[in-house]
Amino acid sequence: MKILLNGEPYETVARFVSELIAEQAPAVRVAAVVNDRVVPAAEQATTALAEGDRVELLTFAGGG
């Protein structure tokens, strides 16, 4: 399935947001936004991905 991940085309076998996170960032705490909707942490395992979804994975960085 082709999605847009953090602004770039990406091919994935992940069916759910949680699977995409496990594939991408197993050791990092990330938040997911699918098609501009913030996916609550508790819903990552049940939120299905679809062809063409725009997915953003975000984490904390240093900032003031």
């Binding site: 602004g7 975000l58 984490t59 904390f60 960085a61």
Partner: peptide, 10 residues
């Protein structure tokens, strides 16, 4: 402490 958001970087 303040922290900022950024895109996850593989």
């Amino acid at each position: 402490v303040t922290v900022a958001l950024r895109r996850f970087d593989r």
